[in-house]
């Protein structure tokens, strides 16, 4: 049986798709057979972030509606043998997904895969609901910023009340916090909410902190998941997230500001 993980946030633009791509790639690189599903019907983007946009023939909605088989719709990642992508439909409307249909697809995928990563759309409408409904685990992506934290709290409420596990009275979804676009220097100067602040407010454990970085744009420009940009802080931070998710004990990194030397202070850093 596969473990189902939803990557969710409520607010848009906080890094759900970036995280889904890197997290799924990370699991696959560790030898786990992984599929990542884009639930953002009508606004598909996971294919672009993973660099497989020109290989999408059939999508998630085609499979749910019986127009294609799973085998036809799953796209094998070009760099990683254990990773498969199920793209969202770009043409169908978001009502095309039914709870029953999605349930059947997930049940089918569970037979072949170790992990099913569900990339949720923003908002709290149908797509977001279906992405979280079947989840065993949740990674709530949050920026250190008021509107993102508030929306994450709302999503945590939904996970605890509207998911399959909640409705059927099973053990609750294991929800963990991933803070993205974290800027330690701004936190130290008191301009930005800290990890502890966000933990205090949302009251769930942290699975990782991704530093704010120009590398994320470089990654999406080229259709490479950020975790594959070897040697960058972002890549290392995502590797740590995968390790922690798999139960390893890794201390947080990239959460302290660099001590700037006098020359950097005067002339500015390269980054």
């Amino acid at each position: 049986m596969a473990k189902i993980i939803v990557i969710t946030s409520g607010k848009g633009g906080v890094g759900k798709t970036t995280t889904s791509a890197s997290f799924a790639t990370g699991l696959a690189l560790r030898g786990h057979k992984t599929v990542v599903i884009d639930f953002d019907i009508g606004l598909r983007n996971l294919d672009l972030i993973l660099g497989c946009e020109r290989r999408v023939v059939y999508d998630f909605v085609n499979v749910v509606q019986g127009e294609a088989t799973l085998h036809q719709a799953l796209i094998k990642d070009k760099n990683c043998d254990n990773l498969f992508i199920l793209a969202a439909s770009q043409t169908k409307d978001k009502e095309a997904l039914t709870q029953e249909g999605v349930g059947l697809v997930i049940e089918d995928l569970s037979k072949d895969f170790d992990y099913i990563v569900c990339d949720s759309p923003a908002g709290i409408e149908r797509g977001a609901f279906l992405a979280l409904y079947f989840a065993d685990e949740a990674i709530v992506v949050t920026n250190p910023e008021v509107s993102s934290v508030r929306d994450s709290d709302r999503i945590l409420g939904l996970l605890a009340s509207k998911s399959k596990r909640a409705v059927e009275g099973q053990d609750k979804i294991n929800a963990r916090l991933l803070i993205t676009r974290y800027n330690p220097a701004r936190v130290e100067s008191g301009e930005m909410l800290s990890i502890t602040d966000i933990e205090d407010i949302l009251r769930i454990p942290v699975v990782g902190v991704i530093p704010e970085s120009t590398d994320v744009l470089q990654a999406s420009n080229t259709g490479t998941p950020a975790i594959s940009l070897k040697g960058t802080d972002v890549s290392e931070a995502y590797c740590d997230v995968v390790s922690r998710f798999l139960g390893e004990n890794k201390p947080l990194r990239f959460t302290q500001a660099d001590k700037k030397g006098i020359f950097k202070r005067i002339f500015g850093g390269a980054r």
Binding site: V146, G190, E191, M192, D197
Partner: peptide
Amino acid sequence: KATANVAKERLQIIL
């Protein structure tokens, strides 16, 4: 200005 504490307080109240 250090505004993070203002953000935290506002969030705690509204949430």
